[in-house]
Design a binder for these strands. Structure first.
Lengths: 254, 254
DNA sequence: CGACGGTTTGAGCACCTTCAAGGAATGTGG
DNA sequence: CCACATTCCTTGAAGGTGCTCAAACCGTCG
């Protein structure tokens, strides 16, 4: 996506630039863990104790690998990240697409080692939160654990939705749901819900949705023929969210 | 495939009767939440504050419905439960199969309402843990929240595995993985890993694995032809766990 | 430019689903 | 206790959705 952007006019894409997705520490996932501390901008001392300075990751760079010892929780400030698990014979399944403002890695709390891998899809900036320090602080402030429980249960809800999608939806429904999901997430972040860059390749999208890369292409082409979307490489414009929503809900042919 | 199995004698099934799966409170999921309290058998007073007496559910009875207000966590003492989510046009995806000793409903911690429904697959006994009381106690004992985080991350790991299965595995691999998964869980509970009752119908198994009911039947028949398993209705005997494990890992044809 | 990764499109086919029907186990009411 | 209803399981045949294989295209970068 980084490359694709370079040819587009700045004005058109201002709203979807990584820069526009950059969140301050207050806005990003870290804050959700800080809020129960009663921390406001004044008390940054405690925050400093647990948050390591932000790191920059390049496209393709790993934030962490599955199996690796669990040392940090990651809060995305800009960019996007895919997480995935793999079979022992090498096939992988992307289990999550994470964008700015979200927390990553909490699933490792139990096993104490990462259960999935995470890779930046584009230049990405993330705060690393040292878990040992987090635990120290959390021992004094129970609200933090409570918040972690809450964040993890949100993860479970998203996972359940993806299972429903993988198990029970047609290819068409999957792609429509994917696009609508992205649209809604961008809207939450006050970005355009109708015009955005998809940071994943067709191959990744296919993997994520349990489809072949070619199927994704063909469906995008069909959606475009039907006037539902306009596709220019990874820039996607939703022209008929209403109908797309129907497709995603399975009311496509009914 | 031949019906020889159907003549199985009652005596053969003694070890897999529900009764054999009955867990005391110490063994069931409740205990995992009590352990951090430093509670041993002596301090049952605190336990009493949060655990309501066990309930009995009949086959097909709901423990809770999706959307319903989150009031209890459930610890299974015997029997088994399926949990599922559904599309708004009525299709459902089974997201979990839970057996004795496991905790149910923690995914509702964040949204404060159940995100999936849970139904007993057979006569099932469960302890209900009132969340408000649990929270009261947890406020004094941070270790409880920590344990909850741990339990939820295990849930996330299981969900990731199911996503991998639904997205990337063939029908054969799915069923083999399902059988091996059950086998391993029974082994953990000191029950026979090679001979057990599956509490789900073919239809449920198919739903769970993202397959048609008929496909499950055909595959079971094929596994039996190949000498991997013996099937007598819901009683299943694994005759070649080694090979089954290979199939589950995708080394079936390679 | 020329090579390369990502994308698009086509043709053929495999796997699994759908549709259909019969059989076995269980339960229910007379 | 038997007849009937119901549910679950099994098997067959036909068909479709999405995959595999293959090739061309495009945009980017060395």
């Amino acid at each position: 996506m980084d490359k694709a952007c370079r040819t587009a006019k700045p004005a058109e894409r201002g709203s979807v630039e990584p820069a526009a997705l950059d969140f301050s520490c207050r806005d990003c996932g870290v804050y959700r863990l800080c809020a129960p501390l009663g921390l406001e901008s004044a008390d940054m001392a405690l925050l400093e104790r647990i948050v390591r300075r932000k790191n920059i990751y390049r496209r393709g760079e790993f934030l962490f690998h599955a199996g690796q010892a669990f040392d940090f929780v990651y809060a995305l400030r800009s960019g996007s990240v895919k997480s995935f698990v793999s079979t022992d014979d090498g096939r992988i399944q992307i289990t999550g697409l994470h964008v700015a403002g979200e927390l990553l890695g909490l699933g490792a709390m139990g096993p104490q080692s990462y259960t999935c891998s995470a890779v930046a899809l584009e230049p990405t900036s993330a705060c690393r939160i040292a878990v040992d320090r987090l635990e120290d602080v959390a021992a004094q402030v129970p609200g933090i654990h409570r918040e972690m429980v809450s964040i993890m249960s949100e993860q479970i809800v998203r996972d359940e939705e993806l299972m429903l999608l993988l198990g029970k939806r047609s290819a068409e429904e999957r792609l429509a749901a994917f696009l609508m999901g992205l649209s809604n997430r961008f809207a939450q972040r006050h970005l355009s819900p109708t015009r955005f860059q998809v940071s994943m390749s067709r191959s990744d999208i296919g993997n994520y949705l349990g489809l072949a890369e070619e199927t994704v292409c063909r469906l995008l082409a069909r959606f475009q023929e039907q006037g539902l979307v306009s596709v220019h490489r990874r820039l996607i414009e939703l022209n008929d969210r209403e109908r797309l929503h129907q497709l995603a809900s399975g009311h496509g042919k009914a």
